[in-house]
Nucleic acid binder design. Structure first.
Lengths: 173, 173
DNA sequence: TAGCCTAGAGAACGACCGTTCTCCGTTCAA
DNA sequence: TTGAACGGAGAACGGTCGTTCTCTAGGCTA
């Protein structure tokens, strides 16, 4: 079923760029070229579409990160490249949580799962619980700074990367 | 004019807890006890009310932080207390930016101003540009972690505080 | 050809949004 | 006592939302 794919591609771009509540189902239909009837056959509600969007985003985002970053320094180099993309608009999961976390339990869960997966990956890189927590904080913090002030995104990524190096060294000592 | 005060108190609680778009003007009216007519006399549009909410939140949040935290360790102790409050729901500015940053220039500006003020305050504590960037990243990152997974909020604050201590020491060396 | 199933286009529906307007009771000056 | 300004309650308005329904055209089977 390629319809779901087309829908998720269109919805993903729109939801990420403008926010979930700012995008109507009819706009997803127009951008995807899929009829409204089939849209609701693929995803029985907007919430289902949002959850699918987040799950797909999780898969792709994590796949890109894990394929490119094989050590701690690589994570922050990858972040700096991401922050520099012209359609970067912060963490799609944090944004979705801020919009819908108070309303939708399903959204809350998928965001939590994503952050847990990210932490697990970092944990695998450093093999220390507290350091993994600290790296997760650095990643999310740099992403927030880059979103609010895109011009300082690269600087934030590098500052966070330096912090990660110092913390990793301190942890080994 | 106490009406504006009542409106901002009600709107602030609702906007922060549930998100801006999830709260209608009529709900602000009901929660504040101020008539709709006067609401629009005080704030000529919802956007104006949102901007005023964020500006007030900036003032109070920064005042609480600066009054309580006189050094770097104090910042993260203050964060841990904040994360433990039962109505904590992450950074109101990041949430508002995720919802409205793509739409409203005024919201974008007030969020940027807030983050710049926060960075300036941190910069005053440590007197080093890169370290100030790193502390800002730690603060925002810990806030994201605490929002997404409230049970780990205290741990995130402490991990970030330990990271700040290590980074501060490394910077002085 | 005749009948039937599908699927798309988009109208329709009910709810709710931000915003404005109407009505009516009160207050207060003359 | 009259009348005019004010203010609150909430109806009204135009628009949009998520979701469902209708209509029509086309392709398949018999």
């Amino acid at each position: 079923m390629e319809h779901a794919e087309r829908l998720l591609t269109a919805a993903g771009e729109l939801f990420y760029r403008r926010g979930v509540r700012a995008v109507g189902m009819d706009e997803v239909r127009a951008a995807s070229g899929v009829s409204l009837k089939r849209l609701y056959q693929c995803f029985p509600s907007k919430e289902a579409l949002v959850v699918a969007y987040l799950e797909r985003r999780d898969e792709r985002w994590m796949a890109s990160l894990t394929a490119s970053a094989t050590d701690v320094a690589g994570v922050f180099e990858w972040l700096e490249r991401w922050f520099g993309e012209d359609d970067f608009r912060g963490c799609g999961f944090v944004n979705a949580y801020g919009e819908l976390g108070a309303t939708s339990e399903a959204v809350r869960d998928v965001v939590r799962r994503h952050k847990r997966r990210l932490r697990d990956f970092l944990r695998g890189l450093v093999d220390d619980e507290v350091l993994a927590d600290q790296l997760l904080v650095l990643v999310d913090g740099a992403t927030v700074t880059a979103m609010v002030d895109p011009e300082r995104g690269a600087a934030a990524a590098r500052a966070a990367g330096r912090a990660a190096r110092v913390l990793t060294a301190a942890c080994r000592a």
